[in-house]
């Protein structure tokens, strides 16, 4: 008996580790001294799609940005493990090279920099990091054309300045296009659905679905259930008060849609 139970943690540890692409433990984050995340736990296994829902201002983007390594967020406690890496110790570009991708809630405009130039630099930097050869112009263009189809974007978008003068929907599609090019291991999509009409939503969802695979995980941050009709998640989590207060399957999203967030937040404080 004693031998078995004492052996258990050692036995479990490596398996547990392998099963997780991302493990966030007791994460506490403040912005300008204000506590936003208050002990958040989340585990994402390879190939899984997790939806994170929650009211405005609950900290969804904060979570996404902390995973990607944006400045201005102070992690006061907790850890974020990504594969074998301590993510919080890494520069944003190192995280990107290791396969972390963030589709921005508000994609940034960079005047004068062609979309294709940014992508080529980014892709080749990651390839160098992995010890692979940089793609030559021809192979790169071949790849680009294939991925453009995925999100039904015209080739002219490649030569326009990054996100400059793009419509809201075009910006979001461009994010998914970049994701397709960079082939991340973990993609965090921050409200990629917001501001999309139904046709654009279908295109974006189609793009994401085409990229689903056994070794690629997705965190879908969204405000609306609607997206989940098209990208069906394995898990749904509700973020409120800086913590995941409820987790479930797709059914949870439908409940939320029917009843709003109030019942969860109320329930949460009642049980706390």
């Amino acid at each position: 008996m004693t031998a078995w139970s004492s052996a258990l943690p050692e036995f479990n540890a490596p398996i547990f580790f392998e099963n997780n692409m991302l493990k966030i433990s007791d994460l506490k984050v403040t912005v300008d001294g204000k506590a936003i995340l208050n002990g958040l736990n989340l585990e994402v296994g390879p190939g899984e799609v997790h939806a994170i829902m929650g009211p405005n201002g609950s900290g969804k983007s904060t979570l996404a940005n902390v995973i990607a390594g944006r400045d201005g967020y102070e992690v006061t406690d907790g850890s974020v493990a990504f594969m074998e890496n301590d993510l919080l110790e890494m520069a944003p570009e190192e995280r990107a090279h290791e396969g972390v991708f963030l589709a921005f809630q508000y994609p940034v405009e960079i005047p004068g920099v062609a979309n294709i130039a940014l992508l080529k630099e980014g892709l080749n930097a990651a390839r160098r990091h992995r010890g692979e050869k940089e793609l030559d112009a021809l192979d790169f263009l071949k790849l680009v054309r294939e991925k453009l189809k995925l999100v039904e974007m015209k080739e002219e978008f490649l030569y326009r300045s990054v996100n400059e003068g793009f419509s809201g929907g075009e910006k979001k599609r461009n994010e998914i296009f970049q994701m397709a090019m960079l082939e991340p291991r973990l993609a965090v999509l921050d409200e990629t659905d917001s501001g999309l009409d139904i046709d654009a939503l279908k295109i974006v969802a189609g793009g994401v679905n085409a990229l689903r695979s056994e070794d690629r995980s997705v965190i879908l941050v969204t405000h609306y259930q609607r997206l989940l009709d098209y990208i069906v998640p394995d898990y749904v989590h509700v973020l409120a008060g800086g913590r995941i207060v409820r987790s479930g399957d797709k059914g949870l999203a439908l409940d939320l849609e029917a009843r709003g967030y109030g019942w969860i937040e109320a329930g949460d404080s009642a049980t706390a």
Partner: peptide, 19 residues
């Protein structure tokens, strides 16, 4: 802008230079 470029894999110096 810098963060956007770095998220896509560019080093900080390359990001500055590109912008």
């Amino acid at each position: 802008q810098l963060f956007y470029c770095r998220q896509r894999g560019l080093s900080e110096e390359d990001a500055v230079s590109m912008i």
